[in-house]
């Protein structure tokens, strides 16, 4: 494990903790897209199908359990916890799951490294993760008033993707045969989706102003 990979995992973990903090202690999910969170549940559930069959390290297994557990609990809170559910922007969060999932299923069936059940599901999870943030970004555009925790959540999530790209570059130059086009391209697409958000995040940070996206 290199420093970029570790930094990526830690920012990912931090993003989840920030979101749980907002939901658990402030009892609010205002500005958070349930559609995106449900897509993340599907992403982790399809990617970590091998959690009981292949062992890499205690660290890996533990992180997999954390990401599965936290994404399930965030969705549970937003759907079933009365106080949290009341703060959910249901009317604004209208993105259709299938609109994103169907192309990813088709793409995974067409473009994969091996045509096996686990491999296609794993590839599907990569494609879906790349676009899972879209409902969240659309919701931000619509509500426009973004509180600090929601802004930090998306910033950390984008940071996680950025560090993973550095990790891939590092591994490409240090490990023989480390070439994974599917992972890289879907990872790059995912990171580019954050570019616009990052631009306005830094702008508001530089001017010391509240984050606001243009209409």
């Amino acid at each position: 494990m290199n420093i970029f990979r570790l930094a990526g995992d830690m920012t990912h973990l931090a993003s989840v903790l920030v979101l749980l903090l907002k939901i658990h202690t402030i009892k609010s999910c205002a500005g958070v897209s349930l559609k995106t969170q449900e897509l993340y549940v599907i992403v982790f559930a399809t990617r970590y199908l091998d959690i009981f069959t292949s062992f890499v390290s205690i660290y890996n297994s533990l992180m997999k359990l954390i990401f599965l557990g936290s994404s399930f609990s965030i969705v549970w809170y937003m759907r079933y916890h009365k106080a949290v559910h009341r703060t959910y922007d249901r009317e604004q969060d209208t993105f259709r799951h299938w609109f994103l999932m169907l192309p990813c299923i088709l793409l995974a069936l067409l473009i994969h490294e091996k045509f096996t059940f686990f491999e296609v599901m794993w590839t599907f999870s990569l494609y879906l993760e790349a676009v899972a943030i879209l409902p969240q970004l659309v919701l931000l555009q619509r509500t426009r008033n973004i509180d600090n925790l929601t802004g930090q959540y998306i910033f950390l999530l984008g940071g996680y993707r950025g560090f993973y790209i550095l990790n891939w570059i590092y591994r490409y130059f240090t490990e023989p045969h480390y070439v994974h086009w599917i992972t890289w391209i879907s990872g790059l697409v995912q990171t580019l989706l954050y570019a616009d958000f990052f631009y306005y995040y830094f702008l508001s940070w530089k001017n010391n102003k509240k984050l606001q996206l243009p209409a």
């Binding site: 990979r5 390290s57 794993w122």
Partner: peptide, 10 residues
């Protein structure tokens, strides 16, 4: 192994 190296990421 080419196939396995990407599965050690999260």
């Amino acid at each position: 192994c080419v196939q396995e190296s990407q599965k050690d990421e999260l």
